[in-house]
Amino acid sequence: MSIRINKEKCVACGKCREVCPGNLIKIGVDKKAQIRHPKECWGCTSCVKECSVNAIEFFLGADIGGAGSWMLTKEEGDIRHWIIHKSDGSVKTIQINKKNSNQY
């Protein structure tokens, strides 16, 4: 359970660093965000939601059933898209309307 930060996409805005509830993200000497303690990630996805250039990828550790997929999220108005890239190259998207309550 952790995140990867894509350095190609990172624009060093620092929003992920600001919002991480565990203070786990630092800005490196290359001025890019990096997760200093990958094992300490809680998996809350706060940083994934905050990143406006989709540079942060969320994945499950191999010890808890990770099989190579990763996930990111985009917000469009009231809709939050969760985009899951699977290891076979396929992509699955789940959309959630923020104005709708959970049914359970």
């Binding site: 997929s69 789940i94 959970n102």
Partner: peptide
């Protein structure tokens, strides 16, 4: 479908687990 959405709103790793499996 509703369970997968509900977990994305509080514990996204469980939804990802169902998709991984």
């Amino acid at each position: 479908k509703e369970l997968l959405k509900a977990y994305l709103n509080m514990a996204p790793s469980q939804t990802l687990k169902w998709i991984e499996e």
